[in-house]
């Protein structure tokens, strides 16, 4: 049985270790809106923020060139930082870059590796809780959109998506549909129909 749960709602009557929950002697409670699977005791976030892990691919915007390092806006509670000596091309404020998380430091700074400029195109910001669904199992959803639109798409786990070329409007529509319907089943099929030009 799966159900939608909201912060403070009891998931189990015994303390269980699940991410984004708190426990007391009476049970375990969710701290976020999520989809809770009673049998598997899993909580899938419906709304949630990005929690940086090393190796995460992110997209950000250069906020400041500090000479020895770049400050990168990740639209997150964390400030991105990349050392300039590891960057090949000169970057300037306003540039959109993709990068990899090295680690989250104390005080809320995310150290980034290999920031690479993404030229042209546009970005869109979505709830980071939706990025796994947009990517899909083994990249399947993303591949479907890319092939259906001819748009180049890079997804940052921090919820920022970069798009360039092809039928960019259609790609945007498809992504927004996934954002809205991430918790439903049969989504892959509906996106397929959308991309093939039939009204869903």
């Amino acid at each position: 049985m799966q159900r939608i749960v909201v912060p403070g709602e009891k998931l189990t009557s015994t303390p269980v270790r699940i991410e984004n929950t708190i426990s007391d002697k009476n049970g375990t409670y969710t701290c976020i809106m999520g989809y809770f699977d009673e049998d598997r005791k899993s909580l899938i976030p419906l709304e949630g923020l990005w929690q940086p892990r090393s190796g995460d691919n992110v997209i950000g915007v250069i906020e400041e060139d500090k000479g020895t390092m770049y400050l990168i806006n990740l639209k997150a509670p964390y400030k991105g930082l990349a050392l300039a000596k590891f960057v090949d091309a000169e970057l300037s404020a306003g540039d959109v870059v993709s990068a990899t998380v090295k680690q989250l430091e104390k005080g809320g700074t995310v150290m980034l590796l290999k920031p690479t400029r993404l030229n042209g195109g546009k970005i869109m910001a979505v709830s980071p809780s939706r990025t796994p669904r947009i990517i899909g199992k083994g990249n399947s959803m993303l591949k479907q959109i890319t092939e259906g639109t001819g748009t180049t798409i890079v997804i940052g786990l921090n919820g920022i998506i970069w798009l360039r070329g092809g039928k960019i409007d259609l790609a945007t529509t498809a992504i927004l549909k996934i954002v809205e319907e991430a918790h439903t089943t049969g989504l892959t099929e509906r996106i397929k129909v959308l991309l093939s030009g039939n009204k869903v």
Binding site: V61, N73, K75, V96, K122, I123, A125
Partner: peptide, 14 residues
């Protein structure tokens, strides 16, 4: 600081 979802070039080219 707010992130702009487009660059000036993108809007101008469009």
């Amino acid at each position: 600081m707010q992130i702009r979802t487009v660059t000036g070039d993108y809007i101008r080219d469009l």
